[in-house]
Every structure is written in structure tokens, then in C-alpha cells.
Amino acid sequence: MLYALLFWEFFKIGLVALGGGMVTVPFLFNLADKYRWFTHRELVDMIAVAESSPGPIGINMATYAGYKTAGITGGLIATCGLVLPSLIVIIIIAGILNKYRQSDKFMEIMHTVHPAVLAMILFAGIELGRLVVVNQTAIIIGIIFWGAIHFVKLHPILYIVAGGITGVLMGL
């Protein structure tokens, strides 16, 4: 019952992994040791793929790891397993949140938590910056794009597509 085992292992990861997609990585290394579904070397390659492909990194990792283990169905099962715990937990919490969102206590807590979330956005941007070769051209292109984003306000998807094209044309 490879499929059931795959589902169960990813369900457990979904249940204990907190936060961004990269937190699933240590658990996947454990899986590699436990079952030999994929090797450490393959996992390192998977991280590079999951960081670059569109979509949440954790989902990309699960789909890819599941695919390596048991083909297309494996990818689907691993992803479902990873997502299901958060789906259940968030549905329960969302019900509770609806009741308390307007309470003073909740607002007071969020008063200091929102700045921490802002810090996390900054940190995620810095981490992403580590994957870019930072030189004069990159900085100038970044500033030009920021100007366009700030003052023209088109849909972000258009800027992302334009960024991809600029990257190819300028050999970034």
C-alpha cells in the first residue's frame, strides 16, 4: 500500500510543519532516510526546482517528491496529504475567528503582531534577493520596476511577466 503510506507520511508533515514551504524540507530528508523513496541528492535538486517553479514552495516539493516516489498519482496523493491537515485546522479556526475578530483583545494582540508580519514580508524579500545576482543592472531594473508598480498600478501579473521577458532580453 504505497499510496496509503505516501498519503499518511505527507499528512503527518502537513500536521507538524509550521509556516513557509521550506519548513517541509527537514521532514522530507527524514522520509528519504526512512523509505528510500528518493535520495538526499534528489531532494537537493527538488529544492532548487520547487523554489523556481510557480506556486507555493511546499506544494511544489510535495508534488515533486510524490511524483518521484509513485508517478502522477503519487504527486497527487502527497499533495492532498500535505494540504488536508491545514484545510481542516483552518476551517475550525476560521469559524472561531469570525466570532472574536472584532473583540478588543484580538485587536490589541494584532496591534503588535501585524508589525511582525510586515517584518516577515521584508525578510522573505531579503531571502529572495539571495537568489538574484545583485549588480548595478539588477538594482537599476529593480528601481525602474518599483517606480512602474508604485505609480502605474497595473495587475502584478503583468509586471511579473514583463520581469521574465526583461530577464531573458537583458541576460540577467
Binding site: 510586515l118 524579500g125 538574484v132 529593480g142 521577458i165 526583461t166
Partner: peptide
């Protein structure tokens, strides 16, 4: 090259979000 360009734009988009959210948060 495409990914590099995309990442630069994503960083610019995130910077803009931080700037816009700063005053409120």
C-alpha cells in the same frame, strides 16, 4: 535569466507592499 528578472520584480512588488502598509501598521 527569466527567473532572475521575475525575482527582481517580485522583490520590487514586495517592497511596494511594505511601503504601502507601513503607515497603517
Amino acid at each position: 535569466h527569466a527567473f532572475s528578472g521575475i525575482r527582481i520584480v517580485v522583490i520590487a512588488l514586495m517592497a511596494d507592499v511594505i511601503i504601502n502598509m507601513w503607515r497603517k501598521n
